[in-house]
Design a protein around this nucleic acid. Structure first.
Lengths: 124, 124
DNA sequence: CTTGACTCTGACACTAATGTCAGGGTTTAT
DNA sequence: ATAAACCCTGACATTAGTGTCAGAGTCAAG
């Protein structure tokens, strides 16, 4: 199939599909016209790519394990583990950071409310 | 004081100080030479700017309430409230998103371990 | 007077996936 | 045959703060 059809079947924009190819995540043979020609497996592959992107992996990271994942069950690809654990570490750090900011912000909001409406005071 | 001194006293790079000025967060008079000349209040102001940046506000957002905050207690600046609440909403969305990804990832890691070391194996 | 530290403006780089445009070739349907 | 729809490459923009460089002017100390 050509790139427009693959785009429709996967939800990825044509631009993105070309980008995945540029990053080594997706390959296509070429028709005589120079148009990309994808086989049916490409649909699954693109969906897999987009799934990992949604988990926050970069195309470079995905490239490092995608071949294995497409050929085996994910659980069979040992090289994916350190990448997952690295990502998990980043996520935890990020969540801690955001939670700290959130706490600070909440406290500030509370203070402003307290200042605006001190007990017993009434403003119009 | 000149920009290098302000940089030393605040920890902000010279580049950043010029950027804050460009974004309307910081003003300086000019010496005959064209050099920026900051007064002593600038130190506090820059520290305040950096604090709000660390909370994740953009220079544009900070610009909208910095003048009030520098002249009053923060709690006195009513216009800051909707911005705080907007930020809080974004933080919550972000934390929920990351937590979801984290859960997914944790599950995957567990699966891989299970596959690699099937104890009490219920393996086919 | 010279050297070195300081400052100025302006510009490009970076992250990373995606949008969008330009200018041109191909396929398909009428 | 012609128009519409499709595809190609290449390039620049986006976010937002910061790093870094170039080329030039200023200032203080020897």
């Amino acid at each position: 199939m050509r790139i427009g059809e693959l785009s429709r079947q996967t939800g990825a924009s044509v631009r993105s599909l070309r980008h995945y190819e540029e990053k080594g995540l997706l390959t296509a043979s070429r028709l005589e016209s120079g148009y990309r020609d994808y086989n049916a497996l490409a649909v699954d592959q693109v969906k897999t790519i987009r799934f990992y992107l949604s988990l926050g992996f970069t195309t470079e990271q995905i490239a490092s394990f995608l071949t294995c994942v497409m050929m085996n069950k994910e659980a069979f690809c040992q090289q994916i583990l350190p990448i997952y654990e690295q990502k998990l570490k980043e996520l935890d750090e990020q969540i801690v950071l955001l939670s700290g900011i959130r706490a600070n912000l909440t406290e500030r909001i509370t203070s402003i409310w307290a200042e605006a409406e001190p007990k017993g005071s009434r403003e119009e």
